[in-house]
Write a protein that binds this DNA or RNA. Structure first.
Length: 471
RNA sequence: GGCGCCGUGGCGGAGUGGUUACGCAGAGGUCUGCAAAACCUUGUACACCGGUUCAAGUCCGGUCGGUGCCUCCA
């Protein structure tokens, strides 16, 4: 299996560092609001990575963090719960949005079971961060200022390490274009905060470093360094996130995680997905093209139609979200479901099972090859769609179809394999309608068809007999 | 200014130099009690200009256009 590695800017074979196990860490959400569809597409891609790696024969260990303490979470928690204790307010707010996030993840078909979620405010994480900061400080990579503890990129470079493994950041870049640093107490403009001391009304954790009492909260980057190591060890195999995280977030993670280590490697492979655009533009509230999953479902779309839409493009290309493209995805999903439902219908059996079996095998091979080639979901899903579209012409092999759907679900998460059949009453209505047709009682047969339609069942008459699908 | 990405038919979107991606939508037709489905046909796709090559959407150079990061951001 080959994946594109941002570190090397090349396609690279996946070779687990430890046995047959691939350890994946994904930067998760800051839980201060609903996730938007761009966030969600990132998680669909990392979920797909997990599925493809597993399908390629590896064991997978996966972790994702919740950033549940930062400027935004704190600000909003104080707005929403002005009278509560800062810690309590923060927890109330972040608990709410973690709940919504998990719900969204499940609605779009992401696997949330085979993954460890870690909160930045977990006592274990806080302790771990303080320990790492102390360690960095002891070895000269961190210094204490009035408003917190900072990481020294100069010290890191003087230790012979490369800052900018992912983005080729030069000293000039980081100092020249950056805004004035008057309001911060750091030595050098490109240094970043490991720990921020408490401001009025903020939640804070006790921390003593080198005799300084530094009650406060962690910086953003240190969270991921610590949580990834605690959950997966270091180095681990694959680190994922959106392209915007390349700099500074992942650069800073690498610096923190490798400063006191012999090896400069935090993870073997960094994967970054391009952003989802809406009508060709980046989402923003002012442009009124900012959508959440609820905006989509309120318009009557299935959350899995959004998944289809995302999988129809490659993760390293910016995909363009339009309502028209979501229509197309919804229609495709409906067609895939109609195909899956054929497994319950003997009338759908092919006359030439051998040929059908061969086409399934060929499609599976194409799908597997496409997924192993840097997650070419567009190609892979196209193959499945094409198979589905041929089904009513060539028929299906119901046993092999079930097996195929099982595999498709493992890879795509579209929930095609476990669709139930219709009720006995509905089956009976279909038989009755056929009898009416045989008797040329068109009024009766049309009435029965309407009745089924009201129950969400569409009936089509084929040469072999009636086939049903859900609307 | 620095570092990137991208420009494919109505929409979305693959594409390892040489044969139809695929999906959705549209038009005409066949079939059908009607409907749906299916089947057949159909639309002069690769931003522009050069170059390399027997052959370029696919490689090289340039132009134009779009977009992202460099500050929190999936």
């Amino acid at each position: 299996m080959k994946l594109y590695n941002t570190l090397t800017r090349k396609l690279q074979d996946v070779t687990p560092l430890r046995d047959n196990l691939v350890r994946i860490y994904s930067c998760g959400p800051t839980v201060y609001d609903h996730a938007h569809i761009g966030n969600l597409s990132t998680y669909i891609y990392s979920d797909t990575l997990q599925r493809a790696v597993s399908m390629a024969g590896y064991s997978v260990q996966r972790a994702m963090n919740y950033t549940d303490v930062d400027d935004k979470t704190i600000r909003r928690s104080r707005e929403r719960y002005p009278d509560a204790d800062p810690h309590v307010a923060l927890k109330l707010l972040t608990d709410t949005y973690i709940g919504i996030f998990i719900e969204d993840m499940q609605r779009i078909g992401n696997d949330t079971e085979h993954m460890v979620f870690i909160r930045a405010t977990d006592p274990q994480t806080i302790t771990g961060m303080q320990k790492l900061i102390s360690d960095l400080h002891a070895k000269g990579f961190a210094y204490v200022a009035d408003d917190g503890v900072y990481f020294s990129i100069d010290a890191y470079r003087k230790a012979g390490k490369t800052y900018g493994q992912l983005s080729e950041i030069t000293a000039a870049d980081t100092s020249k274009s950056r805004i004035q640093n008057d309001e911060y107490d750091k030595d050098s403009v490109h240094d970043f905060a490991l720990w921020k001391t408490q401001k009025q009304g903020e939640p804070a954790w006790d921390f003593t470093l080198d005799g300084h009492s530094l009650k406060g909260r962690p910086g953003w980057h240190i969270e991921c360094s610590v949580m990834s190591r605690q959950a997966l060890g270091q180095p681990f195999d694959i680190h994922t996130g959106g392209v915007d995280l390349i700099f500074p977030h992942h650069e800073n993670e690498i610096a923190q995680s490798t400063a006191t280590e012999d090896s400069p490697v935090m993870a073997s492979l960094f994967m970054h997905n391009e952003h989802t655009l809406v009508n060709g533009k980046k989402m923003s509230k002012s442009a009124k093209n900012f959508y959440t999953l609820t905006d989509i479902t309120d318009k009557g779309y299935d959350p899995l139609a959004f998944r289809v839409k995302v999988l129809q493009s490659h993760y390293r290309n910016a995909s363009n979200f339009t309502w028209e493209s979501l229509d197309a995805a919804q229609n495709l999903l409906t067609n895939l479901r109609a195909w899956a439902d054929l497994k319950h219908q003997p009338h759908a059996d092919s006359q030439d099972l051998q040929q059908i079996g061969a086409s399934y095998a060929a499609a599976l091979k194409t799908i597997q090859t496409a997924m192993d080639d840097d997650l070419n979901t567009s190609r892979a899903l196209g193959e499945l769609a094409s198979l589905a579209n041929q089904a009513e012409t060539h028929g299906v092999d119901r046993d092999k179809l079930q097996a195929l759907l099982n595999i498709a679900d493992r890879l795509f998460g579209l929930q095609l394999s476990n669709r139930p059949t219709i009720t006995d009453t509905q089956k009976h209505l279909i038989v009755e309608r056929q009898m009416a047709r045989d008797a040329k009682d068109w009024a009766r047969s049309d009435q029965l068809r309407d009745e089924l339609k009201e129950q969400g069942i569409n009936v089509r008459d084929t040469a072999n007999g009636p086939l049903w699908s859900r609307l």
